[in-house]
């Protein structure tokens, strides 16, 4: 019997984690209990920043991270985080199909095998006041946690402001920040209605979590266990996409039932956001070179 420890970053009630729990059950079932995956959720075994290298160095055979966290390694990892390049599930699927081989190859160079990827619901705007005119965003402080969000804020004339995850409620309550971009899932799990009041459903991008395995550990499995694992992964990918899509509507409804004003972006705002997205796509293409261009070309061909 093989026992695998699986560090994951998010808590037990996040649908990604629930999907992984089911995946672990499926693997146990498919291998007759011969491959037993223990899920260590919420960073309890290794924190989010450590998970990838921990799997790479063989401290744990399998793990999960948010793919775009690796953007500083290679811009190809943040293809799914370019605003408004792919802002629906259909587009996100097409973009993933176009970028998957590149991501797989990059991970394979690191001795990692990609098992599957599941998107978060679209990233939307959380504000303390309703905004219809994009000019009203000028000077508003916006939570930036990486180069891409900082750049987005700058293009929109907002003031990028660094706020750590645990500090978000305090930062909003004390006026250090007045806007952020995150998924309705995270909005609900962090109870965003406690500190913001307006949800603008812009669906800017659908970032993905990836589940990957140390290639050596994978190859060390007997053939039937490996097949069971890969089959369960394929199932988890399909299930995860469905969970994510189903979750979008229910979580937005939860935001609304807790008193948040849920609105669609005005045409003027949509146009401003789309322009920002186009500019950021150009900038990304300049950074990501030929491989990036190939991904965008394949994506546009598939649309």
């Amino acid at each position: 019997q093989t026992a695998w420890d699986m560090p994951t970053p998010y808590g037990d009630t996040v649908f990604h984690t629930m999907n992984i729990m089911e995946f672990a059950d499926d693997v146990r079932e498919a291998t007759g209990g011969q491959l037993d995956i223990t899920v260590h959720s919420a960073g309890s075994l290794f924190g989010h920043p450590e998970i990838k290298d921990a799997v790479r160095r063989g401290l744990a055979p399998i793990g999960e991270i948010l793919l775009s966290r690796l953007a500083n390694e290679n811009p190809l990892f943040e293809a799914d985080s370019i605003p408004f390049l792919a802002d629906s599930y259909a587009d996100a699927r097409a973009l993933w199909a176009a970028s998957r081989p590149a991501v797989e190859a990059l991970l394979a160079e690191q001795g990692l095998t990609l098992l599957y990827a599941v998107p978060w619901p679209g990233q939307s705007l959380y504000l303390t006041e309703e905004v219809t005119d994009p000019a009203a965003l000028q000077g508003v402080t916006f939570r930036a946690y990486n180069t891409a969000t900082e750049q987005l804020a700058n293009i929109l004339g907002m003031v990028p402001t660094q706020v750590e995850a645990g500090d978000i409620p305090t930062a909003f309550a004390t006026g250090r920040v007045a806007a952020m971009m995150t998924s309705p899932s995270t909005g609900v799990s962090s109870q965003a209605w406690d500190f913001t009041s307006v949800y603008v459903d812009v669906n800017a991008w659908l970032p993905k979590n990836v589940i990957f395995v140390n290639t050596e550990a994978l190859n060390a499995l007997p053939e039937d266990q490996r097949a069971g694992l890969l089959a369960a992964a394929a199932e988890a990918e399909a299930r995860g996409w469905a969970m994510s899509e189903a979750e979008t509507a229910t979580q937005i409804a939860t935001l609304e039932s807790n008193g948040m004003t849920v609105v669609q972006p005005s045409e003027a705002l949509s146009a401003a956001l789309a322009a920002a997205g186009a500019q950021m796509t150009e900038e990304w293409l300049a950074r990501a070179g030929d491989e990036g261009a190939a991904i965008v070309a394949a994506y546009e061909a598939a649309q």
């Binding site: 290298d53 500083n72 390694e73 930036a144 900082e150």
Partner: peptide, 13 residues
């Protein structure tokens, strides 16, 4: 040494 060999970098700006 592994971080050197892996080119591991921080996540932020």
């Amino acid at each position: 040494q592994d971080s050197w060999a892996f080119n591991s970098v921080s996540f932020g700006m």
